[in-house]
């Protein structure tokens, strides 16, 4: 009699356990597949005495929370747990966070950012960054280049002067500026027309430009005026360079038409930084005065600022 009771009890227990396992699996499936999960579920029965079930349950909860956050675009969500699937999701989360940072960098003008961890998206991002980089370079070039002569314009010149003057003061090194002005340029325009005037500007800029180093700047300063800035060059040496440059111009014949060539001369004013200069404008002013002196004393010559 008692044996029969025991057997019935075991059988009942087995049935209850089987029911419990079935419910647990059903709940796990719900966690993995359903949007909503019953919140009032008592999980203690399944988890309290079964460490592996607890591990599995916690892992799936972490997966559910992390994937929900990722699906909503919440990249800051942290969940406990480790292991292959969670680690892969966390790596994806880390990549997306880095991509967010990279996008911010691109927005701030750093077009060198490249992505190498998101397959086809990487190619698309990199293509976008490269195109932005190229477009930006073109825009910078357009904004800083004189359209006619293709040499730096006043914007580029101002940026260069500002940095070079600062460096010259900090390092106490020489810094010189030359202003060139084409002599009688109005007469060229009036006699031969603006097309030839433009041709003269291009040719003269090429000749003068060839006389400077890569770390100097030679730029279009105004209509027929050009400016060169020479870091590390003293006033005396700068004078020699300017003289050589205008001499080269005076030896050049520029074709105006099939039968006629024009001779052009250039005047120049030179000055260098002195200790009381506060900005590069001070040097420009003295160079301009020196240029005026060259213009009013016969042209085709270089004058130097006398201020020390």
């Amino acid at each position: 009699m008692s044996n029969r009771c025991d057997l019935e009890e075991i059988s009942t227990n087995d049935t209850l356990q089987q029911q419990s396992t079935d419910e647990f699996i059903k709940h796990i499936l719900t966690l993995l597949t359903s949007v909503t999960v019953s919140e009032n579920l008592d999980t203690d029965l399944w988890l309290n005495n079964n460490p592996d079930a607890k591990k599995l349950y916690d892992y799936i909860i972490s997966l559910r929370e992390l994937t929900t956050a990722l699906a909503k675009g919440d990249l800051k969500k942290t969940v406990p747990g480790k292991g292959y699937i969670l680690a892969n999701l966390k790596a994806l989360q880390a990549n997306l966070l880095h991509l967010t940072w990279q996008s911010k960098m691109v927005a701030n003008g750093d077009f060198s950012q490249r992505v190498d961890f998101l397959g086809e998206f990487s190619d698309a991002f990199n293509e976008m960054a490269l195109k932005l980089q190229n477009s930006n370079m073109q825009l910078v070039k357009m904004a800083t280049t004189d359209t006619l002569t293709q040499i730096p314009n006043r914007l580029a010149l101002a940026q260069f002067l500002s940095a070079a003057f600062k460096k010259s003061v900090e390092q106490d090194t020489p810094f010189s500026i030359i202003i060139f002005d084409i002599d009688n340029f109005k007469r060229v325009n009036d006699t031969y027309g603006h097309d030839i005037g433009d041709k003269v500007l291009v040719k003269i800029s090429e000749i003068l430009n060839s006389q400077f180093r890569s770390n100097d700047i030679f730029s279009r300063y105004g209509g027929e005026e050009f400016m060169a800035a020479l870091p590390g060059i003293s006033q005396e040496n700068c004078f020699k360079i300017a003289k050589r440059a205008i001499s080269l111009v005076s030896k050049t014949k520029i074709p105006a038409n099939a039968d006629e060539h024009i001779s052009i001369t250039v005047s120049a004013g030179v000055s260098s930084r002195i200790s009381k200069d506060i900005t590069y404008e001070n040097i420009i002013k003295r160079s301009d005065n020196a240029l005026y002196k060259a213009k009013t004393s016969g042209k085709n010559k270089v004058c130097i600022s006398s201020k020390k």
């Binding site: 790596a91 880390a94 990549n95 966070l97 880095h98 967010t100 940072w101 961890f117």
Partner: peptide, 18 residues
């Protein structure tokens, strides 16, 4: 090296090394 967050002004950076 990848950067997740870089707030140097407030002294907090999170980065990953793959």
């Amino acid at each position: 090296l990848r950067v997740e967050e870089a707030d140097l002004e407030n002294g907090k950076v999170i980065l990953t090394v793959d």
